[in-house]
Every structure is written in structure tokens, then in C-alpha cells.
């Protein structure tokens, strides 16, 4: 692969750009989805409205969504980040809700019965217990965002999509392949990292059965 030997600083730059783009989008998406998920949790009407809207956004083709945003906010990173944030909402809000659903009812009942206030229950009981299920959703969202961010190159957002786009325009298959492989590697690496994190988020399981009968 002579292409990589020549162009590796360029590939590295675009990869970092891609990572940054996705990290910013995911970060903002999380800041939005977390309170949103907590707000809708346990109220089916709210869940219906929020996942309804997020679901419509999710089904829009990414290229179309970016195209809609460009006349409003212009070209570049901004519309791409907005688009990615919107895309991730459906998965992330659902992840928060199913994470909170996974908190055992008896644990919550005991917490309320012992006089722990609502805010503390949320922060000290609900969120830590919801974390493993929530992180599984974050993983999906992260992989999706990494993939879709590639399309952002079309509206000048940079990132690894640019490599692929150039390859297509200049008819350089090597560029397309390297770009695609890099995106895939990024997605797989993120996935792996988050799986590790998911496991570490529940140190209290996996050691069951060592207790004798009473």
C-alpha cells in the first residue's frame, strides 16, 4: 500500500478530525438525552411524544437531513454535528429509559421507604444501576454516529468521509478503501472500548453464588 506510506499524516489528520466530530456530537447528544430520558421515564405519554419525534428524525436519510440543515446553518461542522445529535437521540433516550426500567422495583421501593429523597435516589441509585443497560445503548449510538459522520464530508465537515469522497472523485480506489477501513476500525475500536466500560460499570455482578445457605 504505497498510498498509506505517502499519505499517512493526511489519514491521521482526517481520522482525528473524525474522532473529534463524533465525540462532540455524541457529547452534546448525551447532555440532551440524559435529562430527556429521565423526564420521560415512567410516563408513557411523554415517551410516545419524544420517541415519536426522534423516530421520525432517525428515519430521515442522513444526506437529506444534512441538506435540510445547510440552508439554515450553512456548510461545515455545525450542520453535521446537529444532524448527528438528532440521529443519536432516538437510541440514547431509549437507552436511558430502558436503563431506568432495569432498576429493580424493590430496590427503589426500599430506597423511598428509607427516606432517601428523589434527587438522591436518581443520582445514587437509579443512574448507577441504569448504567450498564444505558452504556449498551451508548455503544450503538456511538457506532452509528461514527458511520453517519462519514456522510458529513459532503457538506464540508471533514473527517474520514473526505478521504472516501476524494477517492470517488479522483477515481482512486486506494483512498476509498483506506477511508472505509479506517472508519470501520474506528467503529470497532469504540465498540470494544465501550464493551469493556460496560463490564466495568457493574462490578457487583459476576461473582454470584459464593454465599452458603443462610
Amino acid at each position: 500500500m504505497s498510498f498509506l506510506a505517502d499519505q499517512w499524516p493526511e489519514v491521521l489528520r482526517l481520522t482525528l478530525e473524525h474522532v473529534l466530530l463524533c465525540a462532540i456530537a455524541l457529547g452534546i447528544a448525551l447532555l440532551l438525552a440524559l435529562p430527556l430520558g429521565v423526564w420521560v421515564h415512567g410516563r408513557s405519554s411523554r415517551i410516545g411524544i419524544v420517541t415519536g419525534i426522534a423516530g421520525v428524525l432517525y428515519t430521515l436519510p442522513s444526506l437529506a437531513l444534512f441538506a435540510i440543515l445547510v440552508p439554515i446553518v450553512g456548510l461545515g461542522v455545525l450542520p453535521t454535528v446537529i444532524g448527528l445529535v438528532l440521529y443519536a437521540q432516538l437510541m440514547l433516550v431509549r437507552a436511558v429509559v430502558s436503563g431506568l426500567d432495569s432498576v429493580p422495583e424493590d430496590v427503589r421501593d426500599a430506597a423511598v421507604g428509607m427516606g432517601i429523597d428523589r434527587w438522591r435516589i436518581l443520582v445514587e441509585v437509579d443512574l448507577p444501576l441504569a448504567l450498564p443497560v444505558f452504556l449498551a445503548g451508548v455503544r450503538m449510538a456511538a457506532v452509528t454516529v461514527i458511520g453517519i459522520a462519514t456522510v458529513g464530508a459532503v457538506i464540508d465537515a471533514g473527517g474520514l468521509g473526505e478521504l472516501i469522497l476524494q477517492g470517488i472523485q479522483r477515481n482512486q480506489t486506494e483512498r476509498v478503501v483506506v477511508g472505509a477501513l479506517a472508519v470501520t476500525a474506528l467503529a470497532l475500536g469504540t465498540d470494544y472500548g465501550l464493551v469493556r466500560l460496560e463490564r466495568r460499570s457493574r462490578p457487583w455482578v459476576g461473582q454470584q453464588g459464593s454465599g452458603a445457605a443462610a
Binding site: P104, G113, P128
Partner: peptide, 19 residues
């Protein structure tokens, strides 16, 4: 909350904090 902190509460499924 103050009332509840002054009353012991035990349930069938125990409801211990798993974490």
C-alpha cells in the same frame, strides 16, 4: 423523608442496593 428515616422498613424482596 424525615418521617421515613425514623421508621425501619423491610420488604420481602429485601431491596438491597446491588451496587
Amino acid at each position: 423523608e424525615e418521617l421515613r428515616r425514623g421508621i425501619g422498613y423491610v420488604i420481602q424482596q429485601v431491596g438491597l442496593f446491588p451496587h
